[in-house]
Amino acid sequence: MKIDLKVWRQKNQNTKGHLESYVLEEVDAEMSFLEMLDMLNLKLAKQGERPVEFDHDCREGICGQCGVMINGIAHGPIKNTTTCQLHMRYFKDGDTIYVEPFKAKAFPVIRDLKVDRSALDDIIAAGGYISVNTGQAPEANSILISHEEAESAFDSAACIGCGACVATCKNASAALFASSKISQLAKLPQGKKESSKRAVDMVNRMEDLGFGHCTNTEACQVECPQDISVLNIAQMNYEYNKAKLKK
């Protein structure tokens, strides 16, 4: 099928970007979206042009490295699906597809569709862990965690760190990302001990990095590839408020 592509091209952080039009004639419905971009890049390379830089790695929806805005939606039209898992059969012959990078002040563009999401790592570094050194751990079964608690913690832990929540949020808030870690660890007995400090440190770091605040529009959960619940954000608020009230 024929696809009319409008792809964001931007040389670097300091230059202005623009949409560039490309037409691909022989797109196969079985292709993944990224394979379609591969096809475009091959074509560009052969023409002596710079291929489009885009982030991707595992191409099976778990590493979280891919992620672009496709027709104005993070990871494209199919819910709970990363860009790499989106396939061209969801588009029609003759469709126009707009491809833009995730945009947020905390995600500066590196080139084209590639953005710098290291701010998410910085949020984790602020406290997204249980402070245990290798070798300190007690026998695993000495910490009992009920099936429900473990499953609930897993639901929070499933975040792949792609940043679609930030790109989707009108305020570019990383609340869903940060809260999924805060609440995963707060739900587990071994993580409860430092849950107050963790919440305060991560929330403050998130602000320092220039992310916006959450206004509970719940759009992040809708576009999250892993369907992480917005109630994590409420739990983050709870942990934060509890910590502040105690102090």
Partner: peptide
Amino acid sequence: DQAVAQGVPFGREYSGYL
């Protein structure tokens, strides 16, 4: 032991055991 201490949510029985 180490992974559990780090907060890795392994599958659990209803009783809480791994």
